[in-house]
Nucleic acid binder design. Sequence first.
DNA 1: CACGATTTGTCCGTATGTATC
DNA 2: GGATACATACGGACAAATCGT
Lengths: 123, 123
Amino acid sequence: MIDPHADRALFRQLADLLRDRIAAGEFEAGDQLPSEAALGQHYDLARTAVRAALGVLRGEGLVEPVRGLGWVVRDRGEPRPVRLRRGDEATVRLGEGLPQVVVTRTDGTTEQYPADTVILRGT
Amino acid sequence: MIDPHADRALFRQLADLLRDRIAAGEFEAGDQLPSEAALGQHYDLARTAVRAALGVLRGEGLVEPVRGLGWVVRDRGEPRPVRLRRGDEATVRLGEGLPQVVVTRTDGTTEQYPADTVILRGT
DNA sequence: CACGATTTGTCCGTATGTATC
DNA sequence: GGATACATACGGACAAATCGT
């Protein structure tokens, strides 16, 4: 499974494995992954490496941590279409958690969506 | 500076401080921050906490690490305007490094930009 | 409502590898 | 080659949130 002598970092190898397991449907939206401790034992890794791997998947929007509970697989359905009309603007705000798409309409109102849940369309 | 008894985590307090110092112009685009070791000594924190703080700023697109060199302040100029015409689509791709805005034109060609460097405009 | 078990969040120390200057 | 700096990885510890009993 994980090769300590491989060129690729251990936490990246683990991220690859977990990503594949999720893609294979082993875990569905809302499901919890095995605990960090369980993953560490199973793959013989320190918790540091396990958390680094989960951090990678988190950055990809695949999973998110719930304190006191575990790591939950995010719901990734079809991106929701959002139309950008004349005068509308959209930017991506980085920072807290998942990047957010902020749409500013002509009248000054704003809408906000998790960046990986929308597809912006011109009109 | 940093209060070990504060409610806020140490690495978040450090992130706040460094963010402020950057905003104040103490470091400009292309400048290097003090090394992780130096920051740890100055603020009396373990390197773990220092790296966590830098990770926060990295996620905000403020700085990026350069192996063997140090942490460099990113160039954050005016976001570049990108027009979305009829049939054009834009999505945000998460994963490797900074999130990327991917624009797919009607003719099938695609353009890609770091997510915090563009402002999408409807037509 | 109280309590314990589980799980993630934060923090420390240490060590080694690798890239840059 | 040597010095510096980030990348990765291990170990241990305690706090805080959640959930079932």
